[in-house]
Design a protein around this nucleic acid. Sequence first.
DNA 1: CGACGGATGGGCT
DNA 2: GCCCATCCGTCGG
Length: 207
Amino acid sequence: MTALEDLRALLAGPVEEVAPRLLGCRVEHAGVTVRLTEVEAYGAGGDPGSHAHRGHTRRNGTMFGPPGRLYCYLSYGVHVCANVVTGPDGSASAVLLRAGEVVAGEGTATERRRGARHRDLARGPARLCQALGLGLDHDGADLVGCAGPRLRVGPAPSAVRSGPRVGLTAAPDRPWRFWEDGAPTVSPYRRSPRAAAPDSRPSGGGC
DNA sequence: CGACGGATGGGCT
DNA sequence: GCCCATCCGTCGG
């Protein structure tokens, strides 16, 4: 099987199964390569935390398209973040590229990130895009194609952990964040201050 | 290292 | 208007 077929097969399943398998994969663009260490899964209708939850809009159109495309959006008016679209066409699911380690092009990445330390170059979704030189103009780019940003399969990490997604007000407890255990480039977890209180009820005897 | 608050402007009700 | 899938500086331990 070719690497390209590997990648298409990798992106085809349910988003919460695809997301952890993207850990260890590489994203390359404009002279910089990042090895993914932290991602988050976002579904569609059944996921209140997803941009696609309330249907098709101008911003989230790419999510409703074919898998293997890059969905870029503007966060807090200033920061660009990027996702990989997954699943069958129209399923509107995607995996947020939350953090990674710069493994090539460190000089270029450091310039784009205004002298940040190695660990912080791509530690956070907007930082990762900045290090890679990704902007809104890359929304819809085909990651499986020959030009522009590319995604390549890489060795899976030895241990993966999961927990709630960062910063959400809706579905703040769904454990759809996945990261490489022990990786220093994983971003710190922060719960949205506006999210409902954590569901701390022991649901049947946990200690 | 963890916690907190302000900046910021497009997207959507 | 209100809402944010964030970042960065600045606290305190």
